[in-house]
Simulated assay, not measured.
Amino acid sequence: MSSHHPAPRRALSALTGLGLAVVLAVTGASATTPAQADSPASATGTRATGPTAPTARESRIVRRAVTFDVVNTNESSVACTSDRGSYTLRGTLVGSRRAVSGADGGGRINVLVHDVGTGGWFWQAPQRAYDYAGALARRGELTLVLDRLGYDGSPLDDGRATCLGAQADMLHQVIQRLYAGNYAFADGRGIAPPHALHVVVHGHAVGAAIAQLEAADHDDVDGLVLMSWSDTNASQRAVQEAGRQTLTCLGGASYASYGETANDFASLLFADAVPSVLRRATALRNAVPCGDVTSLSGLLLASLATTGRIEVPVLLLFGSEDALNRPGSADRQAARFGASPSVTTRTFAGVGSALPLERKAPQVQRTVLRWLDRH
């Protein structure tokens, strides 16, 4: 069982020729500070303001908004800068009424961390079959769906003010507040929110990389569920999209669109989604803070240096038709977790990157729930 207290910051290992080559291939340019900020809406023209969490289909499942006071500081292994300002992150607790209210005392809390370009909505679809957080709740799990800084309920005026190292640092702050019960219900009503005895972090794509880095730097979680992320096996399509976003940010923008068009966004994330799910996702896509875009190189280098020291069980999930990762990513990524006591992999045939929202989402949910039952 891992410790629930922060570990000292670990120094980033020296750059290797292989690591540097991977980074340069992905970004296509070095990170600099853009000269002029744009508003978040300017990157796509129609940036969604963020959905309301879906109404629970069973009365025993409730969803309550919560807030976390954090500092946008970077004490991670990623070499990037942030404004060190104080912010409020918003999230949603999803679970039974007793669990969400804290009446059950402390237990396990699953923290869901979204990718760039998506948001907390990714984990909470209105349709029952694609409601990942709801599926966990119906099996007795308590879940926190988090909006990262710069997304939906956690807005950031200047997208250059944060970076992926700071995103990992703020995730660490959230996890520590969950252990302490040091956060609040957004409506100000009720007793103190539930505290965690154990935390499992679920991440998608770059959200998975953030979760992975936090676990490596701080050793304060009990398991990782990582979807559609590879340290070393990105596809050429991923390289091209990262390069396009980087050029947008280096040109002076504050936010960059994820996919040049809505169709590009859909083709990057989906291979087999029902039309209603696809329409909702493209309508809710978010622009990416440029600080996240220009620190992707640093995140990749930190992942190369730190993944091997993660000492908790890991579940790796991929789709065979993922446009952002090359075939064989599951096995290659599994080999990176040399210190983990247990690494489980599953690749879903015919599925793209957005595993919780593809047609095989119920299979994804069952795979995760079986893994949670064993850990």
Score class of each variant (00 low, 15 high):
309 R>K: 13
362 P>W: 10
331 D>Y: 02
307 T>M: 14
331 D>A: 15
360 K>I: 10
365 Q>Y: 13
362 P>Y: 10
321 E>P: 01
332 R>L: 15
374 R>G: 09
356 P>K: 06
365 Q>C: 08
351 V>F: 06
308 G>W: 07
334 A>C: 07
338 G>F: 01
309 R>T: 14
329 S>C: 06
314 V>I: 15
316 L>W: 02
307 T>K: 13
307 T>H: 09
328 G>C: 09
315 L>S: 04
310 I>W: 04
339 A>T: 11
343 V>N: 02
319 G>W: 00
318 F>M: 05
320 S>N: 03
323 A>Y: 06
325 N>H: 09
351 V>E: 01
362 P>Q: 09
354 A>L: 08
361 A>N: 04
339 A>N: 12
337 F>K: 01
315 L>V: 01
343 V>D: 02
326 R>C: 04
353 S>L: 12
340 S>P: 05
372 L>I: 10
358 E>M: 10
333 Q>L: 12
330 A>M: 06
371 W>M: 08
364 V>M: 14
341 P>G: 05
315 L>D: 02
368 V>H: 04
337 F>Q: 02
347 T>G: 03
335 A>G: 06
374 R>H: 13
320 S>K: 09
329 S>A: 15
322 D>C: 04
326 R>E: 11
364 V>L: 14
335 A>Q: 14
364 V>Q: 09
317 L>P: 00
311 E>L: 03
364 V>C: 07
332 R>N: 09
355 L>I: 11
367 T>S: 11
328 G>P: 05
317 L>M: 12
357 L>W: 00
353 S>R: 14
348 F>G: 02
318 F>Y: 15
369 L>E: 12
312 V>N: 07
350 G>M: 09
354 A>H: 01
345 T>C: 05
314 V>Y: 06
372 L>V: 07
326 R>Y: 00
323 A>G: 05
352 G>F: 06
371 W>Y: 10
372 L>K: 05
